[in-house]
């Protein structure tokens, strides 16, 4: 069963500074199956974040439709968990209360939601940090909390918007490996947006390349690399290297053949 179906999706918005309409995304159709890990890559300004924001329900589409498990997406909801680039953890809540937030919104009693939250804190390797506040944690640890918070709410679909772009390179690789480990253990359906081709190939079952301005699907590449995946193995792996080269060529090509550089959509 196709879990997420996007049909002929487009977004045009009024750029108040330029004083004209800008098409950020046009004619995007794709399907993501339950338990699949799909990444969207593309040059900056290709509308990939706009696409993710529409799926999240933060931004209404101009045309087309988004169906999740057969129901039309009409706004944000707990069936779609979101992991933000800047973490967006609530600074006034402890790690445990951040992770338990969605469960609290569902009305679970305190004991129960804290029990579940503890499991997810453990899943992301933060046992012992439950009582700490986000500002006391490193960026990498904060994003682990972000992942745990989204997963603890048991969403049908996990949306990740360049989640590892604001942590250092070493931490990023660790987080990528941990994400594949979590995905292999629990098989959440993930739509992952990134501009990092290595990251997309390393993590995904399928990589979708968006072309630049307006963003539309340029190519889809199946990533047939075996799992579990680790960086120590991948750096030596010729299939990995070939896939990265192929995706990179598509991204760069879409960059070069694009018309005049489009104004960036907000964090496009």
């Amino acid at each position: 069963m196709a879990d997420l179906v996007i049909r002929k999706l487009g977004k045009t918005y009024l750029d108040l500074y330029a004083g004209r309409h800008v098409t950020a995304v046009t004619d995007v159709s794709l399907e993501i199956h339950t338990g699949e890990f799909v990444s969207i890559v593309g040059p900056s300004g290709c509308g990939k974040t706009t696409l993710l924001n529409m799926v999240a329900g933060f931004v209404p589409p101009s045309v087309g439709e988004i169906l999740l498990a057969g129901r039309e997406v009409k706004g944000p909801g707990p069936d779609r968990g979101v992991v933000f680039q800047n973490f967006a953890l609530f600074p006034w809540k402890t790690v445990l209360d951040n992770v338990a937030f969605g469960l609290k919104m569902r009305g679970l009693p305190r004991e129960e939601r804290q029990g579940i939250a503890r499991e997810f804190v453990a899943l992301v390797g933060l046992t012992g940090a439950e009582g700490r506040y986000p500002n006391e944690l490193s960026g990498g640890m904060q994003q682990r909390v972000g992942v745990a918070r989204a997963l603890a709410n048991n969403p049908d679909l996990l949306l990740m918007d360049e989640p590892f772009a604001s942590v250092d390179a070493q931490t990023r690789m660790t987080l990528q490996e941990e994400l594949t480990r979590i995905w292999e253990a629990r098989h959440p359906t993930i739509l992952f947006v990134t501009h990092d081709v290595d990251e997309a190939v390393f993590l995904s079952d399928r990589v979708i390349v968006l072309s630049r301005s307006p963003g539309t699907v340029r190519a889809e590449i199946s990533i047939t690399l075996p799992r579990p995946r680790s960086w120590s193995r991948m750096v030596e792996d010729n299939t990995f290297k070939a896939l990265v080269a192929r995706v990179l060529a598509l991204v760069r090509d879409s960059n070069a053949t694009g018309a005049a550089p489009a104004p960036e959509s907000p964090r496009g």
């Binding site: 329900g57 944000p76 707990p78 779609r80 967006a88 937030f101 969605g102 919104m105």
Partner: peptide, 13 residues
């Protein structure tokens, strides 16, 4: 930040 509101919305608030 708008993202705090969005995070809360996507967690069912």
């Amino acid at each position: 930040p708008l993202e705090f509101i969005r995070a809360a919305q996507s967690l069912g608030a």
